[in-house]
Amino acid sequence: MDNALTLLSFGAEGWGDEIAYGTFITISLALATLPLGLVMGFFLALARQSDEPSLQTSANIYITIFRGLPELLTLFIVYFGFPIGLNLIVHDLLGYEIIDVSSFLAGMIALGVVFSAYASEVFTSAFKGISQGQYEGGYALGLSNFSTMRLIILPQLIRLSLPGLSNLWLILLKETALVSAIGLTDILRSSGIAARVSKELFLFFGVAFLIYLVLSIISSLGIVAIERWSKRGEGLR
């Protein structure tokens, strides 16, 4: 038991600080991916909502591809394929230095793309929950399309899509574990290194498991609070 505590301590002998850094990386990756995925997902949903068939088809192709591919494969394709494609343009055509895509950026792009495909589904069904009269109300008040969206539709849309989005956040948090496969020292990789060096595999992978569990519990509590906040205007039922 003492041995385990020494191994987990912060400092030269313990792995606590490395794992804490890994936790920081995991949380920042998830937080950096979230806005990217949300914004792209919103625009995808808008494209699916539009009357223009070509716009709908483009959005549907995107969603079909990124919902059908395993996240791990998307990650590898972005991590290995992006530099190839990028250097084809940057190095061969423009003659600049070769760019290296960091594993953090690759993780952010891959997870963001997958997140946006799922988020667009949530937003699409939330759009369906807003009646046509809301748009007409905005038109009657002389608001521009953009103002109608910002002042009337978006506030309702956020409330309707919160349950779906909070579910996606929990999934995103868990999917960040995949970036350990492309060498980003997140929770799983830092504890994996600790496990192999110290030969205490069960201890360290157990710690990683528990950290993810704690992050999920904290997220769930946060989500409950946000949902209560979003319903504050609905009054007591």
Binding site: L188, K199, E200, F202, F205, F209, Y212, S216, I217
Partner: peptide
């Protein structure tokens, strides 16, 4: 159900394959 749904599948797989495997 919470334990299984609140943690990444990858972490669970490592825990069983490497963690239990070390015993």
């Amino acid at each position: 159900s919470y334990l299984m749904r609140g943690t990444p599948l990858l972490a669970q797989t490592y825990l069983v394959y490497y963690g239990l495997g070390s015993f």
